[in-house]
Design a protein around this nucleic acid. Sequence first.
DNA 1: AATAAATATTAGGCTAGCCTAATATTATAG
DNA 2: CTATAATATTAGGCTAGCCTAATATTTATT
Lengths: 218, 218
Amino acid sequence: MHSSAEENYLKAIYKLQEANGEMVATSALAQVLGIHMASVTDMLKKMSNKKLVAYQKSKGFKLTEKGRVAAIGIIRKHRLWEVFLVDKLGFRWDEVHDIAEQLEHIHSLELIDKLDAYLDFPKTDPHGDPIPDAKGVFAISKSVLLASLLPGSQGKFTGVTDHSSAFLNYLDKIGLSLGDSIKVKEVEEFDKNFTLVLKGKKSVIVSFKVANSLLISE
Amino acid sequence: MHSSAEENYLKAIYKLQEANGEMVATSALAQVLGIHMASVTDMLKKMSNKKLVAYQKSKGFKLTEKGRVAAIGIIRKHRLWEVFLVDKLGFRWDEVHDIAEQLEHIHSLELIDKLDAYLDFPKTDPHGDPIPDAKGVFAISKSVLLASLLPGSQGKFTGVTDHSSAFLNYLDKIGLSLGDSIKVKEVEEFDKNFTLVLKGKKSVIVSFKVANSLLISE
DNA sequence: AATAAATATTAGGCTAGCCTAATATTATAG
DNA sequence: CTATAATATTAGGCTAGCCTAATATTTATT
Ligand SMILES: [Mn+2]
Ligand SMILES: [Mn+2]
Ligand SMILES: [Mn+2]
Ligand SMILES: [Mn+2]
């Protein structure tokens, strides 16, 4: 089995590859993991020996197939535990990430599949992020940033790109929840503020920063 | 927060104190933890500095109040997770210990109390062991070993002293579950085999070794 | 192309938690 | 009470995973 440290590297590399394409830089990884570059270089040499990453000196690195499968497994565990914490234990969506960071490292062949079944095979986590199935397959979702929509368009709020407590609490405050319908009523040219209609009723004005952190589907 | 290693020491010391009285020996701890004595001495000096154990060179050691509270916290977590795994996820009682060994080290102020509430504040785990409440208080249970009972006596099967898979599977095989009524019909003088009547119906013969691993209440 | 800035690697060191081997202490038996 | 056995401690070493400081390499700027 892999150590928690290795698993955290795998997950971080996976996410960086998703966001920025193939090759990942030592500096980028050091930054997201909150670890010094020298340590990252160290660890990557070890993980390269274990064939978890393909490592090209001074060029960057990427996951091997073995590494990719492992990374998806960790993400699956993290997100399923988040669903458990919110749906079953009653945590709020801004409280679960840190606990899931620990739970994702529990090793058991059977545990996660049983948890998945118990939760009724959820397709997304409490933040709208897709949950890979037992085979590592993500349901494809074609969402766009609310900020990219023109006035008059509308859709369903299905995810966030900002997972911070501050942001999630803000959404709670304005009464916006995953699954709600959103219509773009107006976009102010001057400051790019968005005037939205939530669930066909409530009207709210949000900043571009907010609009640019909301994912919309349909 | 304490490390997983420290927590495992705390739990092991607590259980040894329960079983053998106040003072615990280095050798005993080394044995149950599967660690060499030199390492135990090492670790205990560190834990003594942290005021988790009171350590008297060459005499043994025992938990401080701080250590005792911490140990009970770990036991509470372990047993609540075992209940979750059996009652909610459908694991068998012989499958949950190793997973709970990992889950007991998840750190969260709120998680365990929410889990406790979700499980409806169970008083015992799947093996009949008592679960301390949020204040660290165990429900007092006055059970005795079946092996100590005389023919004619009867009671309710409420716990095991042997937690091995082999033993638990054997109980499944003879159809004996926690909560079942048991009556001692006969004790063979020659080999101390016990003839039992389960739930007022089924009659089975078990060895002294088995009788000596079953806890009976009432 | 030369220089400066950004990135990456190497070298050396540290702590936690384990190990083995050697030594010291305490208990037990004759 | 001494010899032996059982227990416990010390000394020295190891790996994982991190650190800082020094050095090397790549990229950007003039
Ligand atoms: Mn998360
Ligand atoms: Mn999430
Ligand atoms: Mn257990
Ligand atoms: Mn148990």
